[in-house]
Simulated assay, not measured.
Amino acid sequence: MQVLKALGDPTRLDMLSRMASRDEYPCTTLEHELPVGKSTISYHVKILSQAGLVSVSKKGRFYFYTLHRDIIEFYTPGLLGRLTSEAQVTEP
Rank of each mutant, 00 (worst) to 15 (best):
V3W: 07
I71M: 13
D14K: 15
R18T: 04
E86R: 15
K46M: 07
Q2H: 04
R69H: 10
D9R: 12
F62N: 12
Q50I: 00
L53Q: 11
S49H: 14
V45Y: 01
V36M: 14
R12F: 04
Y63P: 00
K5R: 15
K59N: 10
R12D: 04
G60V: 03
D70G: 14
G8N: 10
Q50Y: 01
F74H: 13
M15W: 02
H32C: 00
E91R: 13
Y25E: 04
G37T: 10
L80I: 15
R12Y: 02
F62M: 05
R69Q: 12
A87E: 10
T76N: 10
E91A: 15
Y43E: 13
K46G: 07
E91P: 02
T90D: 03
R18H: 14
S21L: 14
E24H: 08
G52F: 04
S55R: 11
T29E: 14
Y75C: 05
H44K: 02
Q50G: 06
R22T: 09
G78F: 13
A87Q: 08
L48N: 03
T29G: 03
I71G: 10
D9F: 07
R22A: 07
K5P: 06
C27Y: 06
G81A: 09
L13M: 14
R18M: 13
E73D: 15
K5E: 15
V3A: 13
C27D: 08
L34T: 02
T11K: 11
A87V: 04
L16W: 01
D23C: 12
S17H: 01
V56H: 06
Q88V: 08
A20M: 05
L80N: 04
Y43K: 15
F64Q: 06
Y65S: 08
H68W: 09
E91I: 08
K59F: 05
P35I: 05
G8C: 03
L4I: 13
D70W: 12
L34C: 03
E73L: 12
V3D: 05
F62Y: 07
T90G: 08
G60F: 07
Q88C: 05
A51W: 00
H44S: 01
V36H: 08
E33M: 08
M15L: 09
R12S: 00
A20C: 07
